[in-house]
Design a protein around this nucleic acid. Structure first.
Lengths: 346, 346
DNA sequence: ATCATCACTGACATCGATTTCAGTTTGGAG
DNA sequence: CTCCAAACTGAAATCGATGTCAGTGATGAT
């Protein structure tokens, strides 16, 4: 490896002068130094710089599953921010597991200047350890019990659940099932609460056999949908609390030759790139993805700015939006011609 | 920050002894040291360790677009390998741009022990610089002109293009269009070559106005499909050379109210999680994704193993597989009843 | 010609962990 | 009780870059 000493020797100056040159200070022999750097192909050692400065210029990002299009979009948003900064992203999957998250975080705190985390569960204790390590922490998508003191970028999950419920109520559904994500997570818990409580206010109860809990993975959406179909009286509408479980539900309904929305209406949470192209086009509760990543990274970089005053935790909560497509319709019947036309028109 | 000196002082030993304890050597006062570590919450500094050892335990991964489900799956495969190793992944997007790739690589070589790269173009020179920096390099998905001396995990793109062509030929198509990816990339060039040359051998020429080149992004698939539809004599079948452009094509065909496969058959490259659920279910050339990531990471870790002999470059080429669904059919007509039943049966 | 001022320079200490080398301690044998 | 080998320990050097501090050299004013 070629070091600053090699460059100094070849340019006939001291390492200190080379260092000054690198940091943009005026130096008498800049020509000789530049030549030496080019000829030797010198690049300063990141490890040595980190040791001296105490900064790694690296941000740790921990998400449950990078193949979930939602998280992929969020990470891309983060990446778009770091592009113009000297920061890089150290990426890790937690696989929806607190233990893996623990392991990964313990390692990350030693290597990064800050961390953006979508915690596997709300009860997770580790992130507080992260704070002990004096590494700034920002939550994205999911929150933590007692996490109010950290920056966070979230969405109005409760409101999203409400929107889904109101949509189904407006269509006249009364036998309504929910496939929730893990209730240990903020989105899992709040989406269900918003959904169930809104139905309850309208006098529609969700009986236990309709009130199912999955794990945000496609397989659980598939299995739980099958179990709904095996009931003596299946629901006329199903709400799935994230994109992957919605796909699982859709696959199950296809496999069982259920007509959507003729026999069962399906509404999901989180839009998909393919959402409009599916059979049928999916009605979903949508939310900003890329933008969440951008905001989370900006919050973190602000914390890392030495001129930043510190200040209170920023808690950003974005709104969800209902996108009506063709997978929902009044119970029993086929989609009304009006609805169909409306959906197809754009 | 708590250092090894603090621990040593509290345990009443020298830093050298603490270091030995950390590296698992036998030490008389291990109890006192362990206690001191716990009480102080000590973690060794990654920067200092890197400086001393010359290793960062970090792998750089550069892909064109992490929101492409193919690359997300590949990265997840890589991650699954590093999970049981002390390595972490530094992730960067090149956005299909050689310049961004350059910038990112110049920075990465200073921070990582090895790099896995899906180059933006075949003509890219930078990766050779990476080699100058003595950082092992593995290609995934895409190759480089003159890259034969590097490890690589690729697929038989030429064969995949051939499979697509043979499928369309078997259905009887003669007016066939290709939406290729950038011809500067291995997959862009080879998929087109395999496709066009197979058609040519069967006496089917692809005229210039059918022989279009996109950039692997959804928008180009959309635009190029529209341009095909505006021709006086549009094709009866379209081959799109990756998943995103296939989606773009599908959207364009929907927007223009084209019946698939009644008026136009569509075949894609790379399956999607939603592939079977689309309108219509897509016929595609599929290939291993997760597995490609696993293999690439294994190759790289082998290079990093100090006991490894060095040895020749490993060039792994995986096979593609045709998945027949309902988006392709004989020209002109509706899908034959037989085909439809077959597709729906699973 | 002299001196004050300013711009620039190099030796050295430093960041935190590891490793070498020269001890010191321990345990057992005689 | 003495001695030796084996087990363990600490001081100091090291990795590469940077910041401090005490200079050296040039420039201009007198």
């Amino acid at each position: 490896m070629v070091t600053i000493h090699d460059v100094a020797a070849r340019a006939g100056v001291s390492p200190a002068t080379v260092s000054r040159f690198l940091r943009g200070q005026r130096v008498r022999s800049y020509e000789a130094i530049q030549t030496a750097i080019d000829e030797l192909g010198y690049w300063p050692s990141a490890a040595a710089q980190s040791l001296k400065s105490g900064r790694t210029n690296t941000i740790g990002v921990v998400v449950p599953d990078i193949t979930n299009p939602y998280f992929a979009a969020v990470v891309k948003g983060m990446e778009s921010v770091t592009r113009t900064e000297p920061y890089r992203i150290l990426l890790a999957n937690s696989d929806e597991s607190s233990e893996q998250e623990d392991d990964v975080l313990a390692d990350l705190v030693r290597r990064v200047d800050g961390i953006i985390l979508a915690p596997a569960t709300e009860q997770d204790e580790t992130p507080l350890h992260v704070r002990d390590a004096d590494v700034p922490l920002v939550f994205v998508d999911r929150d933590l019990a007692g996490g109010e003191r950290f920056d966070a970028v979230l969405v109005d999950n409760d409101g999203g659940g409400r929107q889904a419920a109101e949509h189904l109520l407006a269509l006249g559904h009364t036998r309504v099932a929910a496939i929730s994500g893990s209730l240990d997570t903020t989105p899992g818990r709040l989406r269900r609460e918003g959904f169930v409580s809104t139905l309850a206010k309208a006098g529609v109860e969700v009986p236990p056999e309709y009130d199912l809990v999955g794990d945000f993975k496609e397989h659980s959406g598939y299995q739980l949908t099958l179990s709904l179909l095996s009931l003596p009286e299946p629901p006329t509408a199903v709400f799935a609390a994230n994109n992957l479980m919605t796909l699982g539900a859709l696959k199950a309904l296809h496999d069982m030759r259920i007509d959507i929305p003729g026999q069962i209406s399906l509404i999901g949470f989180d839009d998909l790139d393919t959402g409009p192209l599916l059979r049928p086009p999916l009605t979903v509760v949508d939310r900003p993805m890329f933008e969440q990543g951008v905001l989370a990274m900006r919050l973190l970089l602000r914390r890392l700015d030495p001129d930043d005053g510190g200040g209170m935790a920023s808690r950003v909560v974005l709104d969800t939006k209902l996108i009506e497509r063709a997978s929902t319709a009044p119970p029993g019947g086929h989609p009304s011609p009006a609805r169909t036309r409306k959906t197809r028109s754009r």
